[in-house]
């Protein structure tokens, strides 16, 4: 006899299972970052408040809350109007009040349309 697992079949508490930027690399002057968020553990028809944001080692620069139902969603993270420094960033998401956060890297590349380039 061979036992395989264990494997999570169903969450009983709301949680963000995955967060993925639609574009893992973006221009540093982008106005928004669309992000795919997968929510689990929410009953059909109910919603969980999800917080998601963009951060670097220097701190969080964008932070949004949204009430999301179970399943996959594309949510939009507004970015600061003046653009951000190029480099590696982190997109994170968690159910409000939860300690269980998920994250994914996001690379910002200097824009081709910066004046003076």
């Amino acid at each position: 006899m061979r036992i395989v697992g264990p494997r999570l079949l169903r969450r009983t508490e709301p949680a963000v299972a995955a967060v993925t930027p639609i574009n893992a690399a973006m221009f540093a002057d982008s106005r928004f970052a669309p992000v795919r968020v997968e929510v689990q553990g929410v009953r059909p028809g109910a919603f969980a408040t999800v917080e998601y944001g963009l951060a670097s080692p220097a701190g969080r620069v964008a932070h949004v809350r949204a009430d999301l139902g179970r399943g996959e969603h594309v949510v939009v993270l507004p970015l600061p109007p003046g653009g951000l420094p190029a480099g590696e960033w982190i997109v994170s998401a968690e159910v409000a009040g939860s300690r269980e956060s998920v994250w994914a890297p996001l690379m910002l590349v200097p824009s081709p349309w910066e004046a003076g380039r």
Binding site: P21, I22, N23, A24, A25, M26, F27, S30, P34, M107, V109, P110, P112
Partner: peptide, 16 residues
């Protein structure tokens, strides 16, 4: 797949 903007970013990384 990469998103549409990511394709352009990858191309721009090369152009830079």
């Amino acid at each position: 797949l990469w998103g549409g903007e990511e394709f352009d970013v990858r191309r721009w990384q090369i152009a830079r």
